Computed example of a mutant assay.
Amino acid sequence: MANLARQLRHEQRKQQQTIAPKAPKKKIQQKRWLSPGEKILGITFGALVCFGSIHIISNQSSIYELNKDIQDTQALIQEQQKSNSDLSIQISELSQYDRIKEKARKLGLELNNQNVKVVQD
């Protein structure tokens, strides 16, 4: 009998479990790490950072090129100034009075003091 009583209790429990309304399962909503708006903002921010870094690198490259051109031009200017100063020294050496007088004598010219006119600036 004990076995029969156990079976009845077991069947009653099964019926109660099947008859009893089951509690509706709650949907577990997974909390998303980023919302779609945050994703769009993040992508936009990343694109702006990339654009800005490319722009900065481009500007630095152009500045470097300009500085290089300026230095090349300054080197050329210094060379030309040196050449000009050398030519000025050569002019002053070639325009000395004694040298001009010697060249004139070699060419057969003679100094006539009566024909000399003094010009003042």
Rank of each mutant, 00 (worst) to 15 (best):
I91T: 04
L107D: 04
L107A: 15
D98G: 01
E110M: 10
S92F: 11
A104I: 03
Q90M: 15
Q80T: 09
E93N: 13
L109D: 05
Y97H: 06
E79C: 00
A104Y: 03
L107I: 05
K101N: 07
E110D: 04
K106S: 06
K103Y: 08
K82L: 10
L111M: 13
E79S: 08
S95G: 00
Q90R: 14
Y97S: 15
Y97R: 12
K82E: 09
N112K: 13
D98R: 04
E110N: 14
S85P: 02
L111P: 02
L94T: 03
L107F: 01
D98N: 06
R99I: 08
I100R: 04
D98T: 12
K103A: 07
D98L: 00
E79P: 01
S92M: 12
I89D: 11
R105A: 14
K106F: 03
L107V: 02
L94N: 08
Y97Q: 12
K106T: 13
K101V: 10
I89Q: 15
E110I: 08
L94R: 06
K82T: 13
D86E: 12
I91H: 06
S95F: 04
Y97M: 12
S85Q: 08
L94V: 13
L87I: 08
S85E: 15
A104S: 10
K101E: 08
L107P: 01
G108F: 06
I100H: 06
N112F: 13
L107R: 03
S88L: 13
S83H: 02
Q80L: 09
K82C: 01
K103W: 03
R99T: 07
D98S: 14
Q96I: 04
S85H: 07
I91N: 05
N112S: 10
D86Q: 11
R105C: 00
E79A: 11
R105I: 12
Q80N: 02
Q90I: 05
Q96N: 03
K82H: 02
S95D: 11
E102C: 01
S88Y: 13
S95E: 14
S85A: 12
Q81V: 03
N84I: 15
S83A: 15
N84V: 11
K82N: 13
S83T: 03
L107T: 00
N112Y: 08
D98W: 07
R105M: 14
S92Y: 01
D86C: 07
S92R: 07
G108E: 01
K101H: 05
Q90S: 11
A104M: 05
L111N: 14
E93T: 11
K82D: 13
E79V: 06
K103H: 04
L107W: 01
G108Y: 04
S83G: 01
E93D: 07
L94S: 11
E102R: 11
S85W: 13
Q81G: 02
Y97G: 03
K106I: 12
E102W: 00
L94M: 14
Y97N: 12
I91K: 05
K82A: 09
R105W: 02
N84R: 10
L87R: 10
E79K: 06
I91L: 11
R105S: 15
S88A: 09
D86A: 10
Q81T: 02
Q90C: 00
Q81Y: 07
R99K: 12
K82P: 00
Y97D: 04
L109E: 03
L94H: 01
D98F: 02
E93Q: 15
K103L: 15
S83Y: 06
E110H: 12
Q80A: 15
E79F: 04
Q80R: 13
R99A: 08
S83M: 06
N112E: 11
I89W: 09
K106A: 04
R105N: 14
